[in-house]
Write a protein that binds this DNA or RNA. Structure first.
Length: 385
DNA sequence: TCTGGGGTCCTAGGACCC
DNA sequence: TCTGGGGTCCTAGGACCC
């Protein structure tokens, strides 16, 4: 029986806009938000003064301005946020090597075995908050719990600048009346489906028979039941064991909806170049190209093509995405185009063991087929003799 | 609420092979 | 010629997250 795990979830408060407030003191105390550069961009981060106006991430800039005409808008600077985040992750790694980077502004820590070194979890959490405040001028919220799911819930419940410990004995009480959509992984659609079954709270979800949930939701049903009970065994994946990326893509919402082939071709070319530059920079080759097209009515389709040869060349990616683009009929003006490359392989690591095995398997099968047709030992490994 | 841009994972049907 | 079942890959779409 291993120790009860102690997991932290660290979540930066209104990360992007907080970084901007730190660097531009005159914004502080006023409603402000970070947005994209185009006229059709959305809010990516709103400060706590803007939130009472109903402004939140994902809202269009137009709508946000309508709700709060005095809103201060700052164009986002992604590289600045990435650099800030990486310094924060370095601070976290000073407390334990078991740090999972969950997104640009979130991390999980497993401090189960570092308890002896620094005394109580609460003490460690306060130390982390203090260092982030001192060194980066930023606040964060921390949830402490026996698993990732509850740690995440804890940080979410005590925002901003919060600290919440969920002890094993308190789990039932905390989940009893908590709406299911507060849990990470239960979005609007799942929440609606659950409501139609009369399940509104985590307490109710935990009491729902597993058979009912699996019948309705398939494999996710098991996960849902556990979530309702506050159980979660998903392991923490330290930053140095993170898997490689599975896809690399870029997309852009055009300034105006259009069907002009010259304009669209140019955008496809730029997106392809952008994707290929990133692939080369990060050392990837890919074998599948996916084109995304969103029309003016928001109807969105994707079409993909698996290549016979892997590539990271911009002109190759462009050639394939254009071919896909031209195979579609495009009945309406286009709002967004996206190009994604997947089935990635990291440069240098020739073939993974799995792929090597697969190659060998398919070679073996080919030999079998020939031997089946022409009799045994027509083909064999040269090394046999 | 006229709705960005970066991703991940899951599902389900069809092709194809044995 | 017709039949069946299993496995894998490809494809398109959808839910979810930050």
């Amino acid at each position: 029986m291993r120790n009860e795990r102690t997991i932290f979830h660290i979540d930066m408060d209104a990360f992007f806009i907080s970084v901007e407030e730190r660097d531009r003191p005159w914004i502080r105390g006023k409603p402000a938000a970070v947005c994209g550069s185009s006229s059709r961009s959305v809010i990516t981060s709103a400060n706590y003064q803007a939130r009472p106006f109903g402004i939140h991430a994902g809202m269009s800039v137009k709508e946000a301005k309508r709700r709060c005409p005095s809103l201060i808008l700052v164009e986002g600077d992604h590289s600045k946020y990435t650099e800030t985040a990486s310094r924060i992750f370095t601070i976290l790694k000073g407390f334990t090597p078991l740090v999972e980077v969950a997104s640009i502004d979130e991390a999980y820590l497993d401090i189960t075995d570092s308890l002896l070194l620094f005394c109580s979890p609460l003490h460690i959490a306060q130390g982390i908050k203090e260092r982030i405040r001192k060194e980066e001028g930023l606040t964060c919220s921390i949830g402490i719990a026996p698993n990732k799911m509850l740690a995440k819930l804890g940080s979410r419940l005590k925002k901003p600048d919060g600290l919440m410990v969920i002890h094993k004995e308190e789990i039932g009480e905390i989940l009893k009346d908590l709406p299911v959509e507060k849990l990470h992984g239960i979005g609007p659609k799942l929440a609606e489906s659950l409501k139609s079954l009369g399940i509104f709270t985590c307490g109710e979800l935990g009491r729902t028979p597993l058979t009912l949930l699996t019948k309705r939701f398939g494999v996710i049903g098991e996960r849902l039941k556990e979530m309702g009970l506050g159980k979660d065994e998903t392991p923490l994946i330290p930053f140095d064991q993170k898997e490689e990326a599975k896809s690399i893509g870029h997309s852009v919402t055009l300034e105006e909806d259009t069907l002009d082939p010259q304009k669209l071709k140019k955008v496809l070319f730029q997106l392809s170049e952008k994707v290929s530059r990133r692939m080369r920079k990060e050392g990837y080759y890919g074998k599948r190209v996916t084109l995304t097209v969103r029309y003016c009515d928001f109807y969105t389709l994707t079409k993909q093509k698996t290549l016979s040869e892997e590539t990271h060349s911009g002109s190759e990616i462009f050639r394939h995405s254009l071919e896909i683009f031209e195979s579609l009929s495009h009945p309406k003006p286009i709002r967004l185009l996206g190009v994604t490359v997947s089935l990635l392989r990291k440069e240098g690591v020739q073939l993974s063991l799995f792929e090597k095995k697969e190659k060998r398997e398919s070679l073996l099968k080919a030999m079998d087929r020939i031997n089946d047709r022409f009799g045994d030992w027509t083909l064999t490994w040269a090394g046999l003799y």
